[in-house]
């Protein structure tokens, strides 16, 4: 998995609340058996018309946001389906960090498996970053995971919280499965005990 430490980039504003994973990557793109190549279809039905032409008003089609690597979004981002195609599409487009007041549980987990940092901040600070994002490509936002800070283009520093284990995995690009396999003895022991106490399972 890609490591995440520091990021300096353009933030795209998406103030809509409840952006769901059907919006992020519509179902017709779930028929792939690969993890890559979904960036072109990120937000497909908001981004292109029925004939496949770009909708100029959509934020990621605007010249100043085409290279955005950060999304500042409304509440409850990523609700709905468990499809990991949503973070795959975001990562493939180049989004490395999302800022919102809240995320749906499964989407939040999925981000960390794909080198994307979902930052949770109070409404006021999301509003501040939303305004900063609205300035366009002259406004670069700095994200520092080690220091747990986001710095606006005006130099305001915002601190954020993150689970230490998730932070550790993201900074070091660690493979969860490899980490868990190091605990194989505990899993073996649990299985042996469960075979006694709940043999019907």
């Amino acid at each position: 998995m890609d490591k995440f430490d520091k990021l300096s980039g353009i933030a795209a504003p998406m103030p809509l609340v409840n952006i769901d994973t059907d919006m992020i990557i519509p179902k017709q793109f779930l028929k792939t058996i690969k993890r890559t190549g979904l960036g072109v279809n990120l937000f497909d039905e908001m981004r292109y018309d029925a004939d496949g032409n770009e909708i100029p008003d959509f934020v990621l089609n605007k010249p100043q946001y085409r290279d955005a690597s950060i999304l500042v979004a409304g509440d409850n981002f990523g609700c709905g389906s468990s499809r990991e195609h949503a973070p795959w599409a975001l990562a493939d487009f180049g989004i490395k960090c999302i800022v919102s007041t809240s995320y749906a549980d499964i989407f939040y987990n999925n981000c960390f498996k794909n080198g994307i940092l979902p930052v949770v901040l109070p409404q006021e600070q999301v509003d501040l970053l939303m305004k900063d994002a609205e300035k366009g490509s002259n406004a670069r936002i700095e994200v520092d995971l080690t220091a747990q800070t986001i710095t606006t283009s005006d130099g305001d520093v915002i601190a954020f919280d993150i689970d230490p284990f998730r932070k550790h995995c993201l900074i070091n690009g660690l493979d969860d499965i490899g980490l868990t396999m190091e605990k194989a003895a505990s899993i073996d022991a649990f299985e042996a005990q469960a075979a006694q106490s709940r043999p019907w399972v």
Partner: peptide, 30 residues
């Protein structure tokens, strides 16, 4: 790997959806 796994909670089972990376994790480690 489906969010509506919550359905099985009707039996008093702890049931939830997971992403594909977690599907791989469960396949490999249970």
């Amino acid at each position: 790997g489906d969010s509506h796994t919550a359905t099985h909670g009707a039996f008093g089972a702890l049931a939830h959806g997971i992403g594909t990376s977690e599907v791989e994790h469960v396949l490999a480690t249970q």
